[in-house]
Each structure stands twice: as structure tokens, then as C-alpha cells.
Design a protein around this nucleic acid. Structure first.
Lengths: 155, 155
DNA sequence: AAAGATTGAAGCATCAATCTTA
DNA sequence: TAAGATTGATGCTTCAATCTTT
């Protein structure tokens, strides 16, 4: 990557540069924009909703922390902090994993289940838009589909 | 299960839903991924680079804080904090605006100018990728091109 | 009162360090 | 030693409050 062509991030035409600047804007603004509605309507951040949604799909609505981290593309510390907060709010509960004393299981509570069902993450139009966008992005960014999150709630 | 379900963001086919989940992943991961390289190579976050880059294009490399906020799609408090930090690092300096005693001007220092030039924000491949992605996104998300950031450094 | 800008508090993410069990 | 998970510190963003000038 540092071969002598190195400095030449420069041989790009103006529309392309303008494009990446605009993308930078999107990346700055979109996550926050998506959080606003959920936050207002359900008191959840997007990532919190995602955690609850993944649990809601799991058998017994229960998942190991490590597995939950994988499904939400999260690091362990991040998930640990988030689940802690969700637990304080009574939406999730944690208990030692019977199979492996190192592991911890996270389980959706009744309140958590209710919360997920109430909280529609996005409006239909938003979902349609974003689904289309997603295809466009991921076709280029993740052609091998390594992004691991999956969702079958409405299958 | 919740078929007739409440707010009915529901009339969507499975690929669309899968799509938005994948997009959620991208939105979670992409900003961080873009920051890594800049952080390592230049000790700058993406947004900090953006601030410096916008200043580097401005006449006298100087901009009012309010104008700089507009060009970086930032809020006032956010910009204020960021510029404070950049000022502490000697990359930017602030001084009262001569024309309007309420306003503050931010100006790139010599060190700041060097920093911007050294710090290639992205590799050529990344820029190409992102430029393409940007078009895909913005065509749907921002058809009227209201995203205000602009960039002419390589015109 | 509105515009321009700053400040401090609160919340979330990231990173390194730590602890326990396999 | 490695895997699973948690904790605490640090840093950035957000929000409300504040201050000055128009």
C-alpha cells in the first residue's frame, strides 16, 4: 500500500471528490438522524434496539454475550456496558451460562419483549429507503457479505 | 407472529428487511472504520480533518465559526469543542471577527496547514469506493442535494 | 429578542487492564 | 495460555444554560 504510488490519492476527478465529501456528510448525519425517532418514541438508541431485537429472535430469547456481540457487530466491552444499562432498566437479565462457567447469558425480560414490539425502529418509508440504500452500499462495500448481522423476525 | 401488527412498518418483503439490517451494520461500522487510518497516520479524527480541510480552502484560510459549522454540518457546541482542542494542539487559532463583535474567526495555523497536506484522508481505492457509494446513497437520500458540505481543493 | 458563540454536565464508545474458567 | 466477560479511565457528542452583541 505504501508503494510509490502512495501519495497519489490525488488522481481523482472532481465529481468523485465531491462525492466523497458528500458521503462524509451522510456518515456524519445519518446515524444521528436514525436515532432521533427511536429515542423520542421508545427511549432507545438504535444500537440498544438492535440488541433487544436480536434477543427477541433467539431461542428462549436468550443468547450468550459473545454470540450477541457477534450478531450485533459489537465489541465485548461495548455490549457489556449496554446490556448493563438495559438490565438496570429491566429490559434484559443476565445469568451464568449452565454449559460454560466462563460465559454469561443475556435474556429478554417480559418488559424487554414488550419494548421491542412497541418500538418500530423506522417508518415504512424509511425502511424502504434504507433497504434500497443498503443494497447499493453493500454491493460495493461488502460484496462477500461478511457483515454478520441477520434478522428473521418477519420471515 | 405480530402479523397484523400495530404501526405496520410491516408490509415489507424479507430481502428488504434483511437489507436494512445490513445497512444498520454498515452505519455502525463504517464511520469507525474510516477513522482508524487517519487516526493512526495523522492523529486526527475524520471530523477534525474535515474542519481543517474546510479551513484550508477558505480565503486567508479563515472562516467564521458559524460558517465553518455550516460547511462541516456541525452544531455550534460540537464545533466549538473541536476547535478548542485543535487550538490547544496549535493547528488552529481563533480571534474576534473584525466585522461583527459577536462572531469569532477560526484560522488555520502553519502547523495546521502542514497537517492537512500530510494527512491524506483516504487511500485512492477507498476514495473511489466511497465516491461511488456516495452517489448511490445520495441519489436516494438527498435528491435535492441539500447536504451543504463542498470541497474544491483539487479542482 | 435574536444571532453568534462558549461552557459544563451527562451519556456512550473505545481502549487497556483485569478476573475467572476452560 | 486462551476464551469469555467485566470494569474503569479517557475522549467525543449532545443538550441545556449562559453570555455578549446586534
Amino acid at each position: 500500500m505504501c508503494d510509490d504510488g502512495g501519495v497519489s490519492a490525488k488522481r481523482l476527478n472532481q465529481p468523485e471528490l465531491a462525492g466523497w465529501v458528500r458521503l462524509a456528510s451522510v456518515l456524519e448525519l445519518l446515524p444521528g438522524a436514525l436515532d432521533v425517532q427511536l429515542r423520542r418514541d421508545a427511549g432507545l438508541m438504535h444500537f440498544e434496539y438492535f440488541v433487544l431485537a436480536m434477543l427477541s429472535e433467539a431461542p428462549e430469547r436468550t443468547l450468550r454475550m459473545s454470540e450477541l456481540a457477534a450478531q450485533t457487530n459489537s465489541t465485548s466491552p461495548r455490549l457489556s456496558h449496554v446490556v448493563k444499562r438495559l438490565e438496570d432498566r429491566g429490559l434484559v437479565e443476565r445469568f451464568p451460562c449452565p454449559d460454560d462457567a466462563r460465559a454469561t447469558n443475556a435474556r429478554l425480560t417480559a418488559a424487554g419483549w414488550r419494548k421491542v414490539r412497541e418500538a418500530d425502529a423506522l417508518t415504512p418509508e424509511q425502511v424502504h429507503q434504507l433497504a434500497a440504500i443498503a443494497e447499493a452500499i453493500l454491493g460495493r462495500l461488502d460484496p462477500d457479505s461478511t457483515m454478520s448481522a441477520t434478522y428473521h423476525r418477519y420471515d
